[in-house]
Design a protein around this nucleic acid. Structure first.
Lengths: 190, 190
DNA sequence: TTAATCATGTAACACGTTACATGATTGC
DNA sequence: GCAATCATGTAACGTGTTACATGATTAA
């Protein structure tokens, strides 16, 4: 149930519309939790039903009307409850789900050139993603300048550092994997 | 749709029962794709309906009866089709979903000691997981000795290497994070 | 005039999780 | 006598994904 709690966390900084939440989400949390716009609207409806949020419609003339959500007492308590309940499942903290690794695992059924192409493609993705972390840092610097919520910014930064370190490790791995496969091919040839 | 394709891949090595698939899965793929036993049975039923598998009931007297699944032509084609269709979604290759990082992101709403406890706990998980990769390597060595499917073993090994490198990176990160938080506290004290 | 931004959703489906049920055999 | 292994599932629920629908304003 982390999407709901992510939204509670964002709303803790102040009321927002679904649209704004969607953008905040994509700017800050998307590197470890991806969510579709439609899912966010659905969760907001569900959370209001649970009493964690309240909303108010704001009529606009120049733009479409919008619905502004804010945390209730119950929502705040739920956030606190979730944060103070440590994860019991050992595996979930570290283990991730990766369709890419599934392909690697099954790569024995593919021609080797295709495997190499796949790895090369993965490498490019890693490089791109590393770049996106750099822009993330810029965004942080921008918010950090406004200060006031230094604490929040500090932890946001930590999640970005985590992403960067994972990404660098993935890059090292893929380079080594490519090397190993190529090296093997060379030996086969001789 | 990777769970289905993982199962297809395992069955490509020979017919198996749901129970055996479950154990194979947990032994080899579980470090990048976790699946509940009940989910595996459900997927098997669905895949047989799609014509990717066929099954046969084996009557046993000393043990409960079992149902042995094997790949059909269509199943094999589907596996090939999936393997040769590269992932189009850029983000999915690298981005992962992590409730732990969600907690870190929201850690500003927690007392700092709790954050430290959480990080320390995460560190222990990392260490445990690193250990489990070691046992994974032993399992590989065991299968590798039987040879015949060297290719499969090679790629299996690569997925383990990936897990290990990610895990080590996570460990480095958490140690640094703990250091940063403690250091900050010290400066506040003075 | 075309794309981007603002703004909200519904419907259907796919996939993941949890709880529960059954029952025999084997080893400690 | 109790836990583990073998062996298979159903039901309900929760979450994630995809496709679709609407419609105004503003900048290139």
């Amino acid at each position: 149930m982390s999407l709901k709690h992510g939204l509670l966390g964002l709303l803790n900084a102040g009321p927002m519309t679904g649209y704004e939440l969607d953008r905040s989400f994509k700017r800050s949390l998307a590197h470890f939790w991806q969510a579709q716009t439609s899912q966010i609207y659905r969760e907001l409806t569900a959370m209001e039903e649970k009493g964690w949020l309240q909303s108010e419609e704001v009529i606009q003339t120049e733009k479409p009307n919008k619905r502004v959500y804010s945390l209730t007492e119950a929502g705040n308590e739920e956030l606190q409850r979730w944060l103070s309940t440590p994860e019991t499942d050992v595996a979930k903290a570290v283990v991730v789900r990766s369709a890419f690794l599934m392909r690697v695992f099954l790569a024995g059924e593919m021609p080797e050139e295709e495997v190499l192409t796949m790895l090369q493609h993965f490498k490019e993705e890693c490089l791109k993603t590393l770049g996106s972390f750099a822009s993330n840092r810029e965004a942080i610097a921008h918010y950090g300048a406004a200060a006031a919520h230094e604490k929040r910014v500090k932890y946001w930064e930590l999640t970005v550092m985590y992403g960067e370190s994972q990404c660098r490790a993935a890059l090292d791995w893929v380079e080594q994997a490519i090397f190993l496969l190529k090296d093997e091919k060379k030996h086969e040839a001789t």
